[in-house]
């Protein structure tokens, strides 16, 4: 079932305005080139803490951040891309990973516990227990009556308290978007070895709109726009983690490379030059950031 184009409407990129497609790509670049800097800094020994890279999974938050920028964010442990694409300061994230007091949590929390409460961004830090952020986000939505997005992985989706919290959100009709960033892996154990059931069917059975598709960013834009008006709702988004669960190593190529696929799509749209310019500029900016 998992494939790069599962559930994707191939006609959506054509319908998107150029500036939207390019902004989307800019945000993907931001996350990608930041994390490539993390890889380098880790290999150089400058970063000495466990890191949870978003490489390969950038499209989900890049697209969502364009539709629901004002939502309260309860991210999962793999949250560099979420932090960056929703507007977190890259320098503060770098400093957090370097353990500096100028980090987004004063250098105390690290890679999997990022927060940002600056400007219009409200992102609460995860503490490392997978799925913990889902009941927290539901409670925060109830307490504040503000729309909220909870990101979690396919492993966290198996936590009993995730179901229960989603069910409570339905019962109370809370404005929460539940997003499963489904990379099919719990560390290295695939979904098929862990369960026989489908989270999307569970969410639908709880009584909320529930969809499943691959991480095509135009599809994510479209569905987030639609479902953000029908909360609570659930999106299971197939994606590919490029690196280890924790650390900068790899176990061979991922099932698909969304970043490359997006570039190819932009080329088809006649946006190669603009995309290359964006990529180059972000790359330079991140090189500067990491070499400062």
């Amino acid at each position: 079932m998992r494939s790069a184009d599962f559930g994707v409407n191939p006609g959506l990129p054509k319908l998107a305005r150029e500036e939207v497609s390019l902004k989307l790509f800019y945000r993907m670049c931001l996350a990608r080139y930041f994390d490539l800097g993390v890889v380098q800094a880790s290999e150089q020994g400058r970063i000495n803490i466990p890191v949870y890279l978003s490489l390969g999974q950038e499209a989900i938050s890049a697209a969502m951040s364009m539709v629901i920028p004002e939502f309260q964010i309860f991210a999962q442990h793999r949250c560099h891309a979420t932090y960056l694409t929703f507007g977190g300061d890259p320098a503060k994230l770098r400093d957090e990973l370097l353990g500096l007091p100028t980090g987004c949590s004063g250098g105390r929390a690290g890679s999997n516990c990022l927060q940002s409460h600056e400007g219009s961004m409200t992102m609460f830090g995860h503490h490392g227990l997978i799925g913990e952020n889902v009941p927290l986000g539901v409670g925060a939505a109830m307490g504040s009556n503000k729309p909220t997005v909870c990101f979690f992985g396919d492993g966290a989706a198996e936590e009993d308290y995730v179901f229960s919290a989603m069910a409570f959100a339905v019962t109370k009709q809370l404005p929460v978007l539940f997003v499963c960033e489904d990379n099919n892996l719990s560390i290295l154990t695939p979904v098929k070895d862990r369960r026989s059931w489908d989270m999307t069917k569970v969410a639908a059975a709880l009584g909320m709109p529930a969809v499943q598709f691959s991480d095509d960013p135009w599809m994510i834009l479209h569905e987030t726009e639609r479902l953000s008006k029908q909360l609570p709702a659930f999106i299971d988004c197939f994606t590919c983690r490029a690196n280890w669960h924790v650390g900068v190593g790899t176990d061979g190529p991922p099932e698909w490379d969304r970043f490359q696929l997006v570039k190819e799509r932009l080329a088809k749209q006649g946006l190669t030059d603009q995309a290359e310019k964006i990529e180059r500029e972000v790359q330079e900016r991140m090189n500067k950031l990491w070499n400062a």
């Binding site: 889902v134 009941p135 927290l136 539901v138 409670g139 939505a141 504040s144 308290y161």
Partner: peptide
């Protein structure tokens, strides 16, 4: 749902 319930309560305290 004890764990979820406690998480929901903490989330509301958080805001």
């Amino acid at each position: 749902s004890d764990v979820a319930g406690a998480g929901i309560a903490v989330g509301s305290a958080l805001v």
